[in-house]
Each structure stands twice: as C-alpha cells, then as structure tokens.
Computed example of a mutant assay.
Amino acid sequence: MGIDFTVFKGSKTGDIVEAKGHRDPGPSEVIVKISHCGVCGTDEHYRHADQGLGHEGVGIITEAGSSVHDVSEFRVGDRVGMSWFHKFCGYCQSCVSGSHQNQCINSTYFGTADWDQGCFGTAVAWDVSALFKIPDEIASEDAGPLMCGGATVWDPLYGAGVRPGSRVGVIGIGGLGHLAIQFASKMGMEVVVFSSSESKAQRAFEFGASEFHITSEVEKFGSIVKVDVLLITANTLPDLNLYLQVLAPGAKIFPLTVSMESLKLSPLSLIAGCFTVSGSGLAPVASIRAMLAFAAKHGIKPQIERFPMTHDGVTEAMQKLREGKMRYRGVLVAA
C-alpha cells in the first residue's frame, strides 16, 4: 500500500523547500505517520543539501513490512521514535557485540541515505532495527528532542562508568546542556554548570544543578571542587585550558558539540592530568532504550518551543535556532 508524504528539504540556497514523495515499506520497515519532530542543531548543517531534514521524529506506525512481525515487537498502532540512524546491519562486529550499534560499519543514517524523506514531514519508512517505542509517560512533543539531544548527553553518563556522587561539569545551558543537567542530577551526580550567561543561573538550578559558575571574562576560576567528567554542550567550543584547573586527575572530557573547530588543549596537559578526551556519537540501541525508560520514570523532559509542521513553521524554527534564541529545543507539530 505505502504512503504519499510531504517533506521539508534543504536546498543549495539554504531555503526550506516543500517536496512530495512516496514510500512502500521494505520487508523490515514500517510506515510511521509523523506527529512531532525535534529541531536539532545538526539539521542546520544540512540546510544547504537537497535532502529531507529532521531526525528527531515521533509518530504512529500505520503499516508494517512483510518481515516486521518476525524480527521485532513493533505493531501497527505503536507510538515510536526515530533518531540519527536509519538502519543497522545486525551482523558486523559492532552490531553482534551487543552494545555498539552506533559504530555499525554498514549503517545508514541522516545525511548518507534516504535523501527523499525526513522527519520534517508527514510520514517516513523506517527500519525496525533503529526504531524505539515511546513510554506512555513521555508526551510525544517531549520525546522528539530526547531521541537525539537526550541520547547524546545520556550515553557518556550511562556508558562511561560515572557513578552517583561523581561531579559532572556541564559547559553551556542550551539544547543539550539543559538535558544533561537533568539526567546527571537524577542519576545522583553533583552537577557543576559553567555558562557565559548569568541570566541562566536560576534555570540551571531548577534543572538540577548543584553549582553555577560564570565563564565570561574569566581567566581563572576560584576555588572549585574538581569535576570527574566534563561535558561540552555549548554551541561553540571553549578554550579547555581554562578548565584544566577544575578537572580531577583522570577526568574524562566529552566534546558533544558538533563542530569543525579544533580543541584547544596541549598533549602535555593531557599527560600531566591523565585526562581522557572521548568522542561520543549518538547512543547505541540498548542505551537509548535505557534513556527513555529513565526519562519516563524520573519525569525528565526538554524545555520546548512549538512550531507548526509547515513551510513557514520549519523556516521560523530553523532561523530561531540559527540565531541562538531557541529555549531550549524547538519541536515541529503536525496539524
């Protein structure tokens, strides 16, 4: 049967373009009617590409491929979420290891395949290997930003051996940072927030921060108990030399901001402090499932601004994101 859909794409000029398409589900795919989609900073990176935008989709399964019932628990009527990855192969070493699907060498993902469709649209065809059931406790408008932004900040905390009582530094209170504060706080960690905006202090504490430190025009921090983990979630990369003084020996640094800039940190600094700088892409399947369950249990949700899933709505949301005025995640809502 398949489905005809509308999708909002990027273009060479950077303008948002409305397009039409049709998809029939493959054997292991389902058709998902999109109800909501988060607006992520990485969508901005593809604004000049002729491809469907959006990778934080939430919707209802309306049709299942011929093998879906044999290889998964998904059924028509399920409310599901989609993220950066479109499909995992299931047979490479990363997949069969059980916890590293995000390193699958045969995966397809946003920007590399399925350019005709995107979650900024009315429907998609999606492989069940990269699909997630949304817990009843999480509203669809809140689930979208969790699928990418939430998973991005969750996995370093969940997968890197950080324990309750650890001190976690978070640089930046934006789309990623405000979720990182909530997750770390609810996981029993002491959350130390660094921000250039003093006006965000109150919100940081409301999200669960234990401490708040201003970074603008600061050349050296005062007396701060050292942090065990540092998450960089600001939209620009900081000079890490400023933060060396607040890192505990053996601290782990996770640059989560998608940027082409170079990190400002000398090898000697790493050697002297036994620090580790770790890349952390979107979480693997088991981790995202755990993240959704944890968010449902502890009431973790993004602070969102809503926009209609229309040409004007997508354009406005992308513009507000580009200008750094979004507080803190935009969500497109279907009529």
Score class of each variant (00 low, 15 high):
A151Y: 00
T112K: 15
G159E: 13
W115Y: 14
E141M: 12
A113I: 02
F120I: 11
I105V: 14
R163I: 13
T112E: 03
V128Y: 03
G121V: 02
A139F: 04
D155E: 14
Y158N: 13
Q117S: 14
L146S: 00
G159V: 06
I134G: 05
A139R: 07
D127L: 06
G121A: 12
L146V: 05
Q117K: 07
D155R: 09
E137C: 03
G111F: 01
V124W: 05
F132A: 12
L146T: 04
T152L: 13
P156S: 08
P145A: 00
Y158H: 15
L157P: 00
V124K: 00
K133R: 14
G149W: 11
G150P: 04
V162S: 05
W154R: 10
S140H: 08
T122I: 02
P135V: 06
G161A: 11
A143N: 06
A143F: 03
S140K: 10
Y158V: 04
F120R: 07
C119G: 03
W126Q: 15
G144W: 02
V124Y: 02
A143M: 04
L131Q: 10
V162F: 08
I134C: 11
W115R: 15
D155I: 08
S107V: 07
G149T: 01
L146R: 02
G118A: 14
Y158G: 11
V162W: 15
C148Q: 12
G161K: 15
I138A: 05
F132V: 09
L131C: 10
T122V: 07
F120L: 11
S107G: 14
P135N: 01
I138Y: 09
W115V: 12
L131R: 02
W126A: 11
G144E: 04
P145D: 03
A139N: 02
G165L: 11
L146W: 02
G159T: 05
Y109S: 15
A123Y: 03
L146N: 01
W115N: 12
L157F: 09
A143Q: 00
P135Y: 10
P164H: 15
A143T: 06
D127H: 04
A139G: 01
A160K: 08
D155C: 07
F132C: 13
F120K: 05
D155L: 07
R163Q: 13
A139Y: 00
A130R: 01
C119R: 03
T112Q: 13
D142I: 01
A123N: 01
I134H: 05
G150F: 05
A160V: 02
Q117M: 08
Q117D: 06
A123H: 03
L131Y: 08
F132R: 01
